[in-house]
Design a protein around this nucleic acid. Sequence first.
DNA 1: CCAGACGTTGTT
DNA 2: GTCTGG
DNA 3: CCAGACGTTGTT
DNA 4: GTCTGG
Length: 212
Amino acid sequence: MCGRYTLHSKPGVLSKHFGTVASPEFKPRYNIAPSSLCPVVRLKNDAKEIIICHWGLIPHWAKDDAKIKPINAKAETLSDRPYFRQAYKNRRCLVPANGFYEWQGKRGSKTPFYIHPVRSEFFAFAGLWESWQGPDNTIESFTIITTSANKTMSAIHPRMPVIISSQDYDSWLEKGADGLLKPCGEDKIAAYPVSARANNPANDSAELIQMA
DNA sequence: CCAGACGTTGTT
DNA sequence: GTCTGG
DNA sequence: CCAGACGTTGTT
DNA sequence: GTCTGG
């Protein structure tokens, strides 16, 4: 699955890669955990924009501050789940990342691996977004879509995020083609073990992605 | 009908 | 908003 | 995702 | 064991 990732490219590089007018400022992150504020790419009036959203989806119909805030949504059941169906139909996004973490082992002795793109600076995870209107505030949030592992990933973990290729960015945002919701090619990603310092989300520095 | 839930993951 | 359980 | 907390009472 | 916080 996908429960921790990195994004350390400069905002200008991000907006250039994703074809947006500009990007909000954000600090380089090497250990983004759920509930963090993160940049995502979405459509606004046929143009792409980058906005900062909470990781953990809060549906627009939630009454109070929702108890369940899914950080992932299964690609296989997106159309079935009332929780995701509307967002899948109307509110898709791309989640920029430079890489993500996945763990092996039991609680107390987890070994993290870092997975990164082979020929690109960025991953673009397929995501969904929502805007929740409270009495005093609005919360924009997102979730990352997961699928089964490709051959590279399956050595580590049975699932992985859906990764959209750059030539499919517009197609995903505009139409959300089902055909894009599958594991990426095994040669698009590579993985290596890193220090267990990555386990604690309080640690957030470039050394976390050094090979262990 | 109304009330209450709505998720994914890993682990045994 | 939409489905499930009672 | 992992790490860390998980409670009530009375008193200042 | 299960929930919350980061």
